[in-house]
């Protein structure tokens, strides 16, 4: 396996950039969808009821199945806002992850907005680290893009393993990538927690 690493690692990190792109775009689209939903949820009963139904549907949507649905059921000439879609696989992955983000941001945004209205700034500001947490979760689950042939990090790992004749090498490669993700994501979560504690402490000190 060692001899395969020099060729594998650059491709793996190129794939990781695709994972980051998926996570960033999903977060942007999901947040854009969630913002009006949160506004509706806090406005009045008339708007809150349909908004809560939409959020419940988004929450229940199985991301992986949504991805396949978008990839196969949307007509190929579909061009939202006049935008021509070049890569249907990648688009389906981003939109399906955006469904998860929209539900997550709606739930957390509602809590934050209520805290803000109650002048509970310490709880309101927790929305930011929660958003960072959502980014990490999407980054981790963007590996499902491998199922539709998007060349992200997991896909590249699977293809590399397929070519390894030795089963032990394959298992070692998967384990190595798992450990990589564990280190990166644990560090990210530790950073998010540190940010949260600092924010809360800063807000407590700033409070009159």
């Amino acid at each position: 396996m060692i001899e395969a690493l020099p060729a594998f690692l650059p491709r793996f990190f190129t794939g990781l950039v695709v994972n980051i792109e998926i996570a960033v775009l999903s977060l942007l689209i999901g947040t854009a969808v969630a913002a009006p939903l949160v506004a509706m949820l806090v406005s009045g009963r008339l708007l809150a009821v349909p908004a809560s139904i939409v959020v419940a549907v988004l929450r229940a949507a199985p991301t992986f199945v949504v991805m396949f649905f978008l990839l196969n059921a949307l007509p190929r000439d579909f061009a939202p806002f006049g935008l021509q879609i070049a890569d249907w696989g990648l688009t389906a992955v981003i939109l399906s992850q955006a469904v998860y983000v929209a539900a997550y941001v709606s739930d957390n945004g509602l809590v934050a907005l209520r805290a803000l209205r109650g002048r509970d700034y310490a709880n309101a500001v927790l929305f930011l680290p929660n958003l960072a947490r959502a980014f990490c979760v999407v980054l981790m689950s963007s590996g499902v893009a491998a199922a539709v042939g998007t060349p992200e990090a997991i896909f590249i790992t699977i293809r590399e393993a397929e070519r390894m004749p030795d089963l032990g090498d394959r298992a070692a490669l998967f384990l190595m990538v798992m450990v990589f993700f564990a280190i990166v994501l644990h560090s990210a979560f530790a950073l998010i927690n540190m940010l949260r504690f600092r924010l809360v402490r800063w807000l407590q000190q700033a409070a009159p």
């Binding site: 590996g143 491998a146 393993a161 089963l167 394959r170 298992a171 564990a182 990166v184 644990h186």
Partner: peptide
């Protein structure tokens, strides 16, 4: 659990598949 929590599920499935295939 630390390793499992931060591993993408897809990767876990393929890791398990590689292990079982042996």
């Amino acid at each position: 659990t630390g390793l499992l929590q931060c591993s993408p599920l897809v990767l876990l499935l393929f890791f398990g598949y590689a292990m079982v295939s042996t």
